[in-house]
Simulated scan of single mutants.
Amino acid sequence: MHGQLSEDTVVEVPAAVLWKVYHGVELGKLAAQLLPDVFGRVEVLEGDGGVGTIVKVTYPPGTPGPGYVKEMFTNIDNEMRLKETEVIEGGPKAAGFDVYRIRLQILEKDAESSIIRTSVEYEIDDKLAEMASKSKVTVERLGTLAQVIAKHLKQNK
Rank of each mutant, 00 (worst) to 15 (best):
F97M: 04
V13M: 10
P60I: 04
M1E: 09
V17A: 11
R81I: 01
I149Y: 11
R103D: 01
G49L: 09
L30H: 02
P61Y: 06
L45F: 07
Q155V: 03
T58Y: 02
G67S: 15
H2A: 06
K83G: 06
T53N: 08
M80D: 12
K151E: 15
G96Q: 11
F73R: 05
Y68E: 09
L145K: 02
V10D: 00
E43N: 06
K136G: 00
G28D: 10
E112G: 00
V137E: 08
M72Q: 15
V55F: 00
D125I: 01
T58V: 11
H2L: 10
I54D: 07
E46H: 13
Y68M: 10
L145S: 01
Y22M: 13
Q105R: 15
F39V: 04
G90S: 07
A129V: 10
T74V: 15
N78R: 07
R141P: 00
H2W: 00
A32V: 07
K136T: 04
A16N: 13
E86H: 04
T53H: 05
K157F: 00
L142T: 02
G49Y: 07
E79N: 11
K154Y: 03
D126A: 12
D37C: 00
T58S: 14
G49N: 09
I149F: 07
W19M: 03
I116A: 09
I149C: 03
R103M: 09
L34E: 11
K83V: 15
I102W: 02
E130N: 13
P61N: 08
A31K: 14
R41T: 14
N156Q: 12
K93P: 01
V51W: 13
Y100I: 06
L107G: 02
M80R: 14
V13W: 09
L153V: 04
D8W: 01
R117T: 04
E7G: 08
D98K: 15
L27Y: 06
I88K: 03
E12A: 12
G49T: 06
L27R: 13
V17L: 11
V99L: 05
L107C: 05
E43A: 10
V38G: 03
K56E: 14
Q147A: 10
E108I: 01
E71V: 08
G28R: 02
G24L: 03
N75T: 12
V11N: 05
V21I: 12
M131E: 11
A31W: 03
K109N: 08
F73G: 02
K93I: 14
E121G: 11
G62K: 13
A129M: 09
A132C: 08
V10R: 12
